[in-house]
Amino acid sequence: MPPPKSPFASLKAGTITKLDETVEYAQSWHQWSQPEIDALTLAYAAGRPLLVRGEPGTGKTQLARAAAQVLGWKLHAETIHPRFEPHELRFRFDAVKRLADAQAGDKGADALDDHRYWRPGVLWKAYGWDSAIEFLPVVERIAEPKGHVVLIDEIDKADSDLPNSLLEVLAQRSFHVEPVAEPIGGPKVKPPLIVITTNEERDLPAAFLRRCIVLSLAPDGEYAGWLVARGKAHFGALEKVAGRELALMDDDVLWEAAAQLVKDRDAVAGLNLSKPGLAEYLDLLYALHALFEDEADAGKRATAQRKWLVRLSAYGYLKHSVDDPKNAANQSTNAAERGKTADQEPR
């Protein structure tokens, strides 16, 4: 059987990809799952956007970054907020600045030049880099990338106007912007890989869903083990990665942090409250690593980290009061109790 013509199909579940540090993102690590590999393979081959669903903290945003790393393409990211306007995915126009300049009566050569007021959005950059580059700040003007990955993060934060505005763009793969005569995109343009995430705070239009490949991210298998596997991607030994031949954190610390997270998730289950997840787990681990990274003795370091994860997890994991959602003092009570327990443990 011939192998699929897709850079994602060659990945194997469990593979760990190092995500390089950029201006926008710190260095990180992504552990691939088979559903991620398969969904990206289909989206890449079909030229359709990948809609990634799942609770916060399951790695939806990082998936786009990992895909860009594997492809060697440039990532363009936009995080949606409730006041986000649909056209901002294509362009932004600073009408206030233009009006101010016009009223100032500036007669210079650059006065009221379109390039001073138009800024390409993520879709313009991805579908029409050649025209977008003329409107970008000098520091962003680079040679044509091999390809483009577009991340539209948390699309459910906006109302239905936003996904509906994408229908024509996704169908035609082209659009117009006022300062450019020719259409942006078109059949001759290499299509970008578009990754869209949702926390499912509101339903998305059916017509929009039909135009997407859909991946629902959820832990596979027992939740604590799923957390620990991803914790090892960040802190475990990686034989083929320089500087990671030895584990950065003891397995017991990873498991105890995961077990505490599971307890705290169970505590808010059924209360219609957001539950802590992978993001909070990794935050705690990175904090514990930073606090004791100067301790050369691995045993002493692990003992200190295990003690402190008990008391610090109350602030990283407990985002709501379990007994009374209106009583914020309950978090302090839980934190104090964990601190007492930690102080009683042998050093």
Rank of each mutant, 00 (worst) to 15 (best):
S10M: 11
D94L: 01
V310W: 09
K5V: 12
P7H: 09
T61K: 03
A104E: 14
V169M: 01
R265E: 04
E178Q: 14
A100L: 14
R141S: 00
A171K: 03
T197R: 08
S216Y: 10
P120I: 02
I133R: 11
R48I: 00
G186Q: 05
T61F: 05
R210P: 03
G236L: 06
T341R: 15
W308I: 06
E78R: 12
A207R: 01
A171R: 03
L246Q: 15
N272G: 05
K74F: 00
V138K: 11
D220H: 09
E178N: 13
L284K: 14
A257Y: 10
D20Y: 04
D114W: 05
V180K: 04
Q103E: 13
A302W: 02
S332K: 10
G147R: 06
D156W: 10
L261S: 11
L284N: 13
K307N: 13
I16L: 05
A233F: 05
V70L: 13
Y117L: 02
G231F: 09
A13M: 07
L123N: 00
A328F: 03
F91T: 11
S28Y: 00
F235E: 04
A104V: 06
G221M: 08
V268H: 02
S321C: 07
D130A: 12
G47N: 06
E134Q: 03
L19R: 03
G185V: 01
Y127Q: 03
V52E: 06
L217R: 14
G57W: 12
W124C: 01
E85F: 04
T22Q: 03
T61A: 06
I196Q: 02
P49I: 03
T198V: 11
D343R: 09
K125G: 01
Y25T: 08
D101G: 12
L318A: 14
I142H: 08
L246F: 12
E295F: 04
A287H: 11
A68G: 04
R244Q: 11
A181I: 03
R311S: 15
D20F: 07
V189T: 13
P35M: 11
E55V: 10
K263S: 09
Y127V: 01
P145R: 05
A290F: 11
R210N: 09
R116F: 00
E168C: 00
I194C: 00
A68M: 03
L89F: 04
E337V: 08
E245H: 11
A259K: 14
S131G: 01
D323G: 05
E295P: 01
K146Q: 14
G47S: 07
E178L: 10
V180E: 07
R210C: 06
P205V: 07
L261E: 09
L170F: 14
G121A: 05
D203P: 00
Y223W: 15
E256W: 11
S131K: 02
A287T: 15
S10T: 14
P192L: 02
A67I: 08
L215A: 07
H87S: 10
G128I: 01
I16W: 02
S6M: 09
L151A: 05
G121D: 02
A233N: 07
A13E: 15
T198S: 15
L312V: 07
R83I: 05
G316H: 10
L282N: 07
R173C: 00
N199G: 02
S321W: 00
V189R: 12
L318T: 10
L271S: 04
K74R: 14
